[in-house]
Computed example of a mutant assay.
Amino acid sequence: MKNNRKELTFLRAYALFTAIGFLALVSYAFNTSNDRKFGTIDVERINVVEKNGDLKLVISNSEQQHSGVINGKALPKRQRPAGMIFFNSMGDECGGLIYDAMDKEAELVLSVDKYGDDQVMQLQYSENPELKKRKYGLQLWDYPKEDTFNARMTRFNEINKLKTTKEKQQAYLKMQKDSLLSNERMFVGKKINNELGVFINDNTGKPRIKIYIDKNNKPKMEFFDEEGKLITKN
């Protein structure tokens, strides 16, 4: 009888240690494997990094979205839509894909940022679903001066402290005069007014060439001088 009890105790202990060993082996294999397969993952944010930890890509919901980094400095926390933010080897944000849609506004934007600065190219779609008004196409910008991001941010912070709308408008005009704001250079696509075509501006942002189909389905070609005066129309 005693021998039977000893054998039973031994078998229980053996089974327990075998189970523990198996679980430890599975855990080790799972944690050391580079290739893992999942059916479905619910996640609020994913950071894609290099082996040294450098951030290269953030995929996130709106609440956890990265605020961005320019010239090695993290931008203040701000509200940004869900999407993807790309980072270059300097650690700066260099573009991204964002999207959202609500009753009065829908948009999807793929942006390419200038090195050390803000966006210079976008593939964009925006719409007011209630009014059935939409714009979509390729948008290009230029910055009149190089390396003006820090100066621009300083001015924006100063403008936020101003109390009246008039003061803010004057401050924005001063920024434009000081070449701190970007200028729209070209749009290829459909505008809110239903004009579809190519719209080209000079380096000050003034319209110079328009080649488009108007809302009445008529083709048009227009050229403007430096003062915005129409000089040729076909």
Rank of each mutant, 00 (worst) to 15 (best):
1 M>W: 07
2 K>T: 14
3 N>L: 08
3 N>R: 11
5 R>M: 15
9 T>N: 09
9 T>W: 07
11 L>Y: 09
14 Y>K: 01
16 L>A: 15
20 I>S: 06
22 F>I: 11
26 V>C: 06
26 V>T: 03
27 S>F: 05
27 S>R: 04
30 F>G: 11
31 N>W: 06
32 T>P: 03
34 N>I: 02
35 D>H: 15
36 R>I: 03
41 I>T: 11
42 D>L: 15
42 D>K: 10
43 V>M: 03
46 I>L: 13
48 V>E: 15
52 N>F: 00
52 N>G: 09
52 N>C: 01
53 G>A: 02
55 L>E: 05
56 K>Q: 08
58 V>C: 01
61 N>D: 12
62 S>N: 15
62 S>E: 08
66 H>C: 05
68 G>R: 03
69 V>L: 10
70 I>R: 00
73 K>A: 15
75 L>G: 02
77 K>M: 04
78 R>E: 10
79 Q>A: 11
83 G>W: 00
96 G>P: 12
98 I>Y: 05
99 Y>T: 14
102 M>F: 13
102 M>G: 15
103 D>L: 15
103 D>C: 07
104 K>L: 12
107 E>P: 05
107 E>I: 11
111 S>M: 02
111 S>K: 07
112 V>R: 09
112 V>T: 06
115 Y>P: 12
116 G>N: 07
116 G>M: 00
118 D>H: 00
118 D>C: 07
119 Q>I: 01
119 Q>G: 04
121 M>Q: 04
124 Q>Y: 04
126 S>K: 11
126 S>A: 09
127 E>Y: 04
130 E>K: 03
131 L>P: 02
132 K>L: 05
133 K>T: 14
134 R>H: 08
134 R>E: 13
134 R>P: 00
136 Y>I: 02
136 Y>H: 12
140 L>T: 01
142 D>S: 15
144 P>S: 00
145 K>A: 06
146 E>S: 11
148 T>I: 03
163 K>E: 14
165 T>V: 14
165 T>W: 10
165 T>C: 11
166 K>P: 09
167 E>F: 06
172 Y>E: 12
172 Y>W: 13
173 L>Y: 05
176 Q>M: 05
176 Q>I: 07
184 E>G: 01
186 M>Y: 03
189 G>W: 02
193 N>W: 03
198 V>Q: 09
200 I>N: 04
200 I>P: 02
201 N>Q: 09
201 N>P: 14
202 D>L: 03
203 N>L: 04
208 R>Y: 13
209 I>T: 06
210 K>L: 08
210 K>R: 09
210 K>M: 12
211 I>A: 11
214 D>S: 02
216 N>I: 03
218 K>D: 06
219 P>I: 13
219 P>Y: 01
221 M>K: 10
225 D>G: 05
225 D>Q: 08
226 E>A: 01
228 G>E: 13
230 L>V: 04
231 I>A: 00
232 T>N: 06
234 N>D: 07
